[in-house]
């Protein structure tokens, strides 16, 4: 499957997605109205706790729900110069958690260099590993050991404990390869030794919301252990946001209206208080700054009074007083038990 960008699909353009959600196929009320009802508008940041770097859109998979529109045909990746600028900011502001994502972040040629630099700073490093990359090429086979050496928290997607549901979302044979990769991670201690965290991400493989995070975690643990002898630490449930390829899926399958209505009907005020954009700074592959990874994919750069919008010229104080940019897609983070890169928020 080619990315939307490669297909020159209308939804590859962020403006087209925003127009679809905010105008042409708007389903109300607006997210702004919902926030205002509880006195949360304009939405303000708390404190930057997570520095999330998108190392590029290049990926060995082309998942049907991917909000990044990542894939083998995407060539946009972060340069070493941008990484150096990020490292400077991490150092000077004493940031403690750095979350590396993509695409497949490991495909960036400076990935290992960056991890070692971060490791020497003593920050907590999270790598969002799609699992199959470990088997994709012999040069990636030692990734489990590399992760372990650098004390990385590994977060990996596995939308279901059955092959049929996982492969429907992530591609043919992805489930089988993911299980193989999980076994390799287990073998070096991930998910089994207390300090080597292996957390899984559950994204619903269709037009429905995730169920209770703890109940799903229990079921996943039982199933993966009994069938494959695979262990992991926590399961994070993440709601699919109606953008990019997932928006395309919703449109194509005739589920857009019902899905948006469901997101809005299950708006949870507590989840709204805990949205991840309040404590996260998202850095695009080209160094531009966003309130979250989803705003990044919609090209909604941060807006501040006195700071630039690029990692090379930011003013952290101004970032703290900015208004977080919002849109109808944000209902994905406030539905049900809430959703963030770290799972449910309530």
């Amino acid at each position: 499957m080619a990315s939307l960008a490669k297909q020159q699909h209308p939804l590859a353009r962020s403006e087209a997605q925003i127009n679809f959600l905010e105008k042409d196929c708007f389903i109300g009320p607006s997210f702004k109205e919902k926030l205002a009802e509880q006195g949360l508008f304009p939405l303000k940041p708390t404190e930057i706790e997570i520095f999330q770097m998108n190392l590029g859109k290049m990926c060995n998979q082309t998942c049907r729900h991917c909000h990044v529109d990542a894939g083998p045909d995407r060539k946009e990746i972060m340069t070493q110069e941008t990484m150096l600028q990020c490292l400077d900011q991490i150092k000077s502001h004493g940031l403690k958690v750095v979350d590396l994502t993509g695409g497949a972040p490991e495909m960036n040629p400076y990935f290992r260099w960056l991890v070692e630099e971060l490791s020497s700073l003593g920050v907590h490093i999270i790598v969002r590993c799609n699992l199959t990359i470990i088997l994709a090429n012999p040069k990636f086979h030692d990734l489990p050991q590399f992760f372990k050496t650098n004390n990385i928290e590994v977060i990996s997607s596995l939308p279901h404990f059955t092959a049929v549901r996982t492969n429907a979302q992530r591609g043919s044979q992805v489930f089988e390869k993911s299980i193989q990769a999980l076994k390799l991670l287990n073998k070096v201690g991930y998910g089994r030794e207390p300090t080597y965290l292996l957390n899984l991400v559950y994204n619903p493989s269709g037009a429905f919301l995730p169920g209770d995070q703890l109940a799903l975690e229990k079921e996943f643990k039982t199933r993966l252990k009994s069938t494959y002898d695979v262990d992991f630490n926590q399961l994070f449930t993440i709601t699919n946001l109606p953008i990019s390829r997932y928006l395309d899926y919703l449109q194509q399958s005739g589920n857009y209206e019902a899905y948006m209505e469901n997101l809005i009907a299950t708006y949870n005020p507590t989840a709204a208080k805990n949205v991840m954009c309040r404590n996260t700074l998202s850095i695009g592959w080209d160094g531009y700054l966003y309130d979250c990874d989803f705003n990044q994919m919609l090209d909604m750069k941060i807006v501040t009074n006195n700071s630039g919008t690029h990692i090379s010229n930011i003013d952290f104080k101004s970032l703290q007083s900015r208004n977080i940019r919002i849109g109808q897609h944000c209902f994905g983070c406030t539905a049900g038990a809430g959703s963030s890169c770290g799972g449910a928020t309530t």
Binding site: H160, T162, Y202, P204, F208, A215, L216, F220
Partner: peptide
């Protein structure tokens, strides 16, 4: 059907 899917039930 939706609720079972949300709760992680498989097609089988």
């Amino acid at each position: 059907t939706s609720d079972s899917l949300e709760k992680g039930a498989s097609e089988g």
